[in-house]
Design a protein around this nucleic acid. Structure first.
Length: 538
RNA sequence: GGCGCCAUGGCGGAGUGGCUACGCAGCGGAUUGCAAAUCCGUGUACCCCAGUUCGAUUCUGGGUGGCGCCUCCA
């Protein structure tokens, strides 16, 4: 039995689908008007894990993640840049999709867009007006909050408090300051759709109510979104939804937000004024820099309801931990995913595999952790324990245990084929090239100073083969890269390792250590194994 | 002013009325030319004060501190 924490009731409740064997999940997506912030991916990653688990537990899941592709922010951006609002929203929507793909978010079934639902929205608003739950004002149609006796029930607030509270401002045209726009009449030059109230566009909130109705029905199982959307967005969705159809989402799930050094990194965070600070939270940048697997692991290691710390230290710790797992999986990590249409069979099959008592007990622990409000952090802890157990087992049994851990992880989107690259050297290669080249040039200069021209020429030849041209000048040497940096890195490292190998063969350990130390200073470590020396970049 | 969340060992982060996750870092040892990786071992932490209890980090009340929302936000 799966338990889910419902924000509406503030307690865990057994998950009982409206239609047996099916689950309807709606998670608020983005308004695509700017580069994707890592916070925008929290919902997709977290709810993808939720969705995968529901699938694994035998439910058919319809997972809707909307795109609010028309909004004031997009229009303002278009006005400022001269680009069309359509081009802007399409570009950033595409970026959002790309980030999701890279983060292995695979379970979303629908991405409805606002602009595809305009007629339905107009009908919906018309219904609210007809029911006297909305009214026409000078600049649009507004929802009448006073007609909703329990308005504010999701976040436990009362209308009176909000007025005295401060920032809700009186507007002469509205019946109540908390009334919100369902339809906004267009000003000249703004995008506009015809409606009974005049040309305009939908207000914020209405799109989610209408698109969830269109995809999942009037009432559905789970509505998710970021913690900051509780108010006013979700509160207003509930108001509309209940005014329209009587009942709306049954269960509300809210994910914690991204923070840096304990403080939320949001739109209006003063720190965001620093371009360098803003840059580090851009999704594309983070994925490039740290790898999707590491980020997914970091997020899943915590609990979905709690904030997620994205300080450098936290990311590094996540990478180290994941790298350790990846190393232990070895080639098992890259084995293809099981092709299974019915996830539950897959999970049942994992549960049925033979395992040592300790492994079996942690496998059970994984199931319980996930069933209890999707405790991914605790579930991952059991994975670590299985790996730890595996080290004590005979090779054949150990392999079985590793496969169990891998497949459990895969049930929530971890350990995908190719993930190893995110924790290995390849990613970091290009940025390290110039640091290593500095060392290589120094080694060559030294060889020349010692009149060891054989070594010096060997270095130049190897660099040439790597696509690097060396130029000697009076005041030192410089180099130019002709080809791809990652390939050059591999070759240069092979050269450096070869040089060190030579020194070791000559028992010149001082020289050998100078090379190791020089590399270590640039963040590259060498591992002398039985099959040769491997290198790893941090 | 209103509503809510959280306080766990050096750090991150689960969890439980008594059996003290997990990861990172640290320390000791094995291994290694030296390292790295790996392996073995190692740390009785739970904001403060009352109360309930045989027993509380875990429950109740109060306090303190941090954070979030009440404006745009995922």
């Amino acid at each position: 039995m799966i338990q889910v924490f419902n924000t509406l009731t503030r307690q865990k409740e057994p998950f009982t689908p409206i239609r047996a064997g099916e689950a309807g999940l709606y998670v608020c997506g983005v308004t695509p008007y700017d580069d994707c912030h890592i916070g925008h991916l929290m919902g997709p990653v977290l709810f993808d894990a939720v969705s995968r688990w529901l699938l694994a537990r035998g439910l058919r899941v319809r997972f809707v993640n909307n795109i609010t592709d028309i909004d004031d922010k997009i229009i303002n951006r278009a006005k400022a840049s001269g680009e069309s609002w359509k081009a802007i929203s399409e570009r950033y929507t595409e970026q959002y999709f790309t980030c999701m793909r890279r983060l292995h978010v695979r379970t979303v079934t629908d991405h409805p867009r606002c602009t595809e639902y305009i007629p339905q929205m107009i009908a919906y608003i018309g219904d609210l007006v007809a029911k006297d739950r909305a009214y026409v004002a000078a600049d649009g149609v507004y929802y009448d909050v006073l007609k909703q006796p329990d308005y504010g029930k999701l976040t436990g607030r009362r209308l009176d408090d909000m007025i005295s509270g401060s920032r809700v401002e009186r507007d002469a045209g509205l019946r109540h300051p908390a009334d919100f726009a369902l339809w906004k009449l267009a000003k000249p030059g703004e995008p506009s759709w015809d409606s009974p109230w005049g040309g305009g566009r939908p207000g914020w909130h209405i799109e989610c109510s209408v698109m969830s109705l269109g995809t999942l029905g009037e009432t559905f199982d789970i509505h998710g979104g970021g913690d900051d959307l509780k108010f006013p967005h979700h509160e207003n969705e509930i108001a509309q939804g209940e005014a329209h159809g009587g009942s709306y989402a049954r269960c509300w799930m809210h994910n914690g937000l991204i923070q840096y050094e304990g403080v939320k990194v949001g739109k209006s965070d003063p720190r965001m004024k620093d371009p360098a600070f803003a840059q580090r939270f851009k999704a594309v940048h983070l994925i490039d820099e740290h790898g999707a697997a590491v980020l997914r692991f970091l997020v899943l290691q915590g609990h979905y309801r709690r904030p997620s710390e994205f300080a450098e230290k936290a990311i590094t710790a996540a990478r180290t931990a994941l790298a350790k797992m990846h190393r232990q999986f070895g080639e098992l990590l890259d084995e293809p995913l099981m092709d299974t249409g019915r996830e539950s069979d897959f999970l049942a099959e994992i549960a049925a595999r033979p395992a040592s008592p300790a492994v079996s007990s942690h496998r059970d622990g994984f199931f319980s952790a996930m069933d209890d409000d999707f405790g991914t952090g605790s579930a991952i802890a059991h994975l670590f324990s299985i790996l730890s157990e595996a080290r004590k087992l005979e090779p054949a049994q150990a392999r079985q245990a590793l496969i169990i851990a891998r497949d459990l992880g895969r049930s929530i989107g971890l350990f995908q084929p190719g993930d190893g690259a995110d924790t290995s050297s390849a990613e970091a290669a290009s940025s390290k090239l110039s640091a290593v080249m500095e060392l290589v040039i120094a080694l060559r200069q030294q060889a020349r100073a010692n009149r060891a021209f054989a070594t010096s020429d060997r270095i130049r030849d190897a660099l040439t083969a790597a696509g690097i041209t060396v130029k000697d000048a009076k005041d030192g040497a410089s180099w130019i890269l002709g080809g791809a940096s990652d390939q050059a890195m591999e070759r240069v490292m092979a050269l450096v390792i070869g040089l060190r190998e030579q020194a070791r063969t000559d028992k010149d350990f001082a020289a050998s250590d100078r090379i190791r130390d020089g590399l270590a200073a640039t963040g590259i470590t060498l591992n002398d194994g039985t099959s040769g020396t491997q290198w790893t970049a941090i």
